[in-house]
Simulated assay, not measured.
Amino acid sequence: MSGPVRLDRFRWWHIDEVLPIEADLFGAEQWSPAMFWNELASGHWYRVALDVDGTLLGYAGLTVQPDEAWVQNIAVRRNAQRRGIGRALLEDLLAEADRRGAHSVLLEVAADNAPAQRLYAGYGFEPVGVRRGYYQPSNTDALVMRRDAEPTGNGTDHG
Rank of each mutant, 00 (worst) to 15 (best):
E68L: 15
E91K: 14
N38F: 10
F125L: 03
V144A: 06
A75Y: 11
L119T: 12
H44W: 14
V105W: 14
H44F: 05
L40A: 06
R82K: 05
A110T: 09
A75F: 11
E17Q: 15
I15A: 07
V76F: 12
Y123N: 02
G155D: 05
D53R: 04
E29L: 00
Y46L: 13
A49E: 04
L90T: 11
A41F: 11
A60V: 06
W12D: 12
T63C: 12
D98P: 01
W31A: 03
R6W: 02
G155C: 11
G129V: 15
G54W: 12
A149D: 05
F125W: 06
N154D: 15
A23S: 13
L19V: 08
D157T: 09
A116H: 00
P66K: 03
E108A: 10
A149T: 08
M1Y: 04
L50P: 04
D148N: 05
R11P: 01
L25G: 02
N139A: 15
P137F: 14
V76P: 01
P66Y: 08
I74N: 00
H14A: 00
T156S: 07
L119H: 13
A23C: 04
G58W: 01
G153F: 03
A60K: 03
F26D: 02
Q136A: 06
F36D: 03
R118H: 05
A28V: 03
D112T: 01
L94H: 04
H44D: 12
Q65H: 08
R9V: 15
R100V: 00
R87H: 06
G3V: 08
E126M: 11
S104M: 15
G122Y: 00
N139C: 06
